[in-house]
Simulated scan of single mutants.
Amino acid sequence: MSTITESVDVKVTVSTAYNQWTQFESFPRFMDGVEEIKQTDATHTHWKVKVAGVIREFDATITEQHPDERVAWTSDAGPTHAGVITFHRIDDTTTRVTAQIEIDPEGFGENVADKTGVLDRKVKGDMERFKAFIEDRGGQETGAWRGDVDRPAQH
Rank of each mutant, 00 (worst) to 15 (best):
R89V: 03
P105M: 02
M31K: 06
F58V: 06
D92S: 13
R70S: 15
F30R: 02
L119M: 11
R70N: 14
E110P: 02
A42F: 13
M31C: 12
V71G: 06
F30T: 02
E57C: 06
A60G: 11
T74M: 11
T93E: 12
A99F: 00
W47A: 00
E35T: 12
W47R: 01
H66G: 03
R29G: 08
V54S: 14
F30C: 05
F58Q: 01
F87N: 06
E69N: 12
G78S: 01
A60E: 11
R70P: 01
Q39F: 05
T45Q: 05
P67V: 00
D104Q: 10
G53H: 04
W73G: 04
Q65W: 03
E64N: 12
I37A: 04
K38N: 12
D114P: 04
E64M: 03
I85L: 06
D41Y: 08
R121Y: 10
G83K: 02
T93P: 04
A77S: 14
R96P: 02
T61C: 07
I90N: 09
E69S: 13
V51G: 09
D120L: 05
E64H: 09
A42C: 09
A72V: 04
R96K: 14
D32E: 15
T63A: 07
T40N: 04
F30K: 00
R56G: 04
E110S: 12
